[in-house]
Amino acid sequence: MSAQPLPPVVRRAIDAANAADTQAFLDSFATDGAVDDWGRLFYGPDAIRAWSDREFIGVRVSLTVTGARQSGDTTTVSAQVGGDGFNGPSGFAFTTAGDGITLMRITG
């Protein structure tokens, strides 16, 4: 996977997660945005916040981007994940519309 520049909204979401800034992370999503964590779906800011508090920013996630590719409105990012939760390589697919993430799917 090549290291293409990330769309600004995807970069904002990753930077917010790395800064433990939950509000900035939530602000990167469209109003009706969602997270798909291996088939578990979290719709809207309240559900995304609860998920993140338990399993993402709340466990001090860190994301080091190792590659990215763009296909239409979806940016697939490879990252090395660290923190107090899952650690290791993972993939994230960010589907965007305008300046908001409509879906962040954890892919592996």
Rank of each mutant, 00 (worst) to 15 (best):
L63R: 02
G44D: 13
D32A: 07
N18I: 00
T64L: 12
T31C: 12
A24K: 04
V65A: 15
D37E: 14
D53G: 11
N18E: 01
I57Y: 02
A20H: 07
Y43H: 02
S52K: 00
A30N: 11
S52C: 08
A19S: 10
A30I: 08
G44R: 12
V59E: 15
T31I: 10
T22E: 02
D27G: 11
A20C: 07
D36I: 03
V61R: 06
I48T: 12
A50W: 04
G33R: 02
A30H: 12
I48R: 01
T22G: 06
A34I: 08
S62C: 08
P45T: 13
F29Q: 00
W38M: 10
R54E: 12
G58W: 13
W51Y: 14
S62N: 14
A20Y: 12
G44E: 11
R60W: 08
S28N: 09
A34T: 10
D37N: 13
D53K: 07
Q23C: 08
A19N: 15
D27M: 04
S52W: 00
I48L: 05
G58F: 05
P45F: 12
F25V: 05
G39W: 00
A16D: 10
A24D: 05
A47D: 11
D21V: 07
A47H: 10
D53M: 11
R60F: 15
P45R: 13
V35Y: 01
A34W: 06
G39C: 00
A34S: 05
D37F: 06
V59S: 06
R54T: 09
D21M: 02
F42N: 11
V61G: 12
D53R: 15
G39E: 01
W51L: 11
T22S: 05
Q23W: 13
L26S: 01
L41E: 15
G33F: 00
D36W: 15
D37L: 07
S28T: 08
G33A: 09
G44I: 05
R54Y: 04
V35L: 08
Y43T: 15
D21S: 14
D53A: 07
G58R: 04
F56N: 06
G44Y: 09
R49Q: 06
A50M: 09
F25P: 00
A50H: 06
T31V: 10
G44H: 15
F42E: 05
R54G: 04
I57N: 02
S52G: 05
G58P: 04
A24P: 04
W51A: 04
A47P: 13
T64N: 06
A19L: 06
G58T: 03
G44M: 08
G39P: 00
V35A: 05
T22W: 00
A47W: 06
P45I: 11
F56E: 15
D27H: 03
V65H: 03
D36H: 12
G58A: 09
T22D: 05
R49I: 15
G33L: 02
D27W: 02
L26R: 00
A50T: 14
D36V: 07
V35M: 07
R60M: 04
T64C: 06
A16F: 09
A17W: 00
A19F: 15
A20G: 10
R54K: 07
L26T: 01
F25L: 13
T22K: 00
D37T: 11
R54C: 09
R54V: 09
A34C: 13
T31E: 03
R49L: 05
A20E: 05
F29E: 00
Y43V: 13
F42M: 03
R60P: 03
